[in-house]
Design a protein around this nucleic acid. Structure first.
Lengths: 248, 248
DNA sequence: TTCTCCATCTTGTTTAAACAGGTTATATAA
DNA sequence: TTATATAACCTGTTTAAACAAGATGGAGAA
């Protein structure tokens, strides 16, 4: 399963932390101990630890050790985005999720679209609108743009199932990075037409650009979420030059 | 300024990318070239590149090179959170930012507070509410909890300026990690009392736990943002075992 | 011409070793 | 007893080297 040594160490430690074998606020076995446990070099252990730090599971303290800072997520709330996906959340909450293709078209990026999406003007695109439902309740309106020359042969049929499965399994393309922007916007006429908003007049909007392994932009998506079903989680590690925390 | 070699290489490359000396979609000089440029080992160069990849500036392509995927942020919109802070945004938009301490109290964490914040029950805390204004317009309501035994000697005076400056410069404590959760919530009576919400009946709410260099939780904050002034940006790099992108 | 193979470039993984510097508990000296 | 020095741990940074594997352009064969 794991292609590399550091990855399998990473996974093993991750599982043990999630299973609370290594508890919150305790210190992990030292690098030297882990070297013996996994029979590998110090660099390899450190790489696995660095990845765990990146996802907010552990924190290294110079001269002391590596402390576990992972806390299990409150399973009572409905969490989507970030650490969990639509389908996973639906499954965990024992809700049935369905996808309805509202619109399937092909367009060419004009100046306005190009500016919003990041695609070059003139790029041929698939333009798709899909409605995501949980137990029949419409919760997310997805507006997708796919580069036709990269994501080839898309059909309405595929869009109604899983485009990503098609991209990864049929086209054998690997996804590698996504830039996301989250805002809260006023409900539009289209939103209220499709989504069951209750009396909220705002939406959580996630706009994202996704790049493949070759560093090429192949997707721009705007997901419009009904507030009750939106929760995004994130871990920010302080890098010396980036001031993520000066807000207070 | 830079404590380490990899950090100064990281900074130098970052600036050059931001200055578009290395343009979007172009390939950076190869590792071997950079080794000569910066007179260092391959590992050191690779570490700097890895950090740039982490913040969504570059993407390595096996067998080809390292592609720049950084795009300058649209300076027309008002962006806060994530990559930019309240103060920075205010300065860039030439708006005057002020902070008003609405409430300054000391409490002990009961079961309810403990569960929400992550502090242990019985922990002595500072409980602070602050109103953030831009050009006199109240945009953010911050609710802070600080561990009294870690962030010692906090006063209303300090809270009206910058608590983080106090923590870093006076207490000499280093901040290292923050876990954040973003949701959209209905406006409460307290919100509408302080914030200028127009006719929006929802808020962007960012809840965060912040840890210091020793891996100890010292802060829990809930920031309640007026929708128009909220924009959060994020870069997610695909790690083989984490399914961040399966939402489509 | 067109196809195939290979040399040569690129990044990816792993090991080994050395030294710097922070933390802690123990042993020694005042 | 108290303070101090130190040994023995810990993580942090950097170098060097080797091999794997993906990409590419050019040489040579069909």
């Amino acid at each position: 399963m794991a292609k590399s040594k550091y990855e399998s160490i990473y996974r093993d430690l991750k599982e043990r932390i999630e299973g609370e074998e290594y508890e919150y606020q305790t210190i992990l076995p030292s690098e030297n101990t882990l070297i013996k446990t996994y029979d590998c070099s110090r660099n390899t252990v450190r790489r696995a630890l660095a990845q765990l730090a990146e996802i907010g599971y552990v924190q290294a303290i110079n001269g002391v050790g590596v402390r576990v800072v992972y806390q299990p997520v409150d399973k009572a709330s409905f969490v989507i985005g970030g650490i969990e996906t639509f389908k996973e959340s639906a499954t965990r909450n024992k809700l049935k999720s369905t996808t309805e293709v509202v619109l399937f078209a092909e367009i060419v990026a004009d100046a306005r679209v190009a500016k919003r999406s990041g695609f070059k003007e003139g790029t041929e695109l698939y333009y798709i609108q899909r409605l995501r439902k949980l137990d029949g309740k419409p919760c997310i309106l997805d507006i997708n743009l796919f580069d036709k020359s990269i994501v080839t042969g898309l059909t309405k049929e595929i869009a109604s199932k899983s485009i990503y499965e098609y991209i990864e399994n049929e086209l054998n393309m690997e996804i590698s990075m996504s830039k996301r922007k989250m805002t809260v916007e006023r409900v539009t006429q289209v939103d209220s037409m499709y989504l069951s908003l209750g009396d909220s007049n705002c939406l959580a909007v996630v706009s994202s650009q996704t790049f493949n392994k070759k560093g090429l932009l192949f997707e721009y998506t705007q997901s419009r979420h009904v507030p009750e079903y939106f929760c995004f989680m994130d871990t920010a590690v302080r890098h010396k030059d980036v001031d993520l925390f000066k807000q207070v």
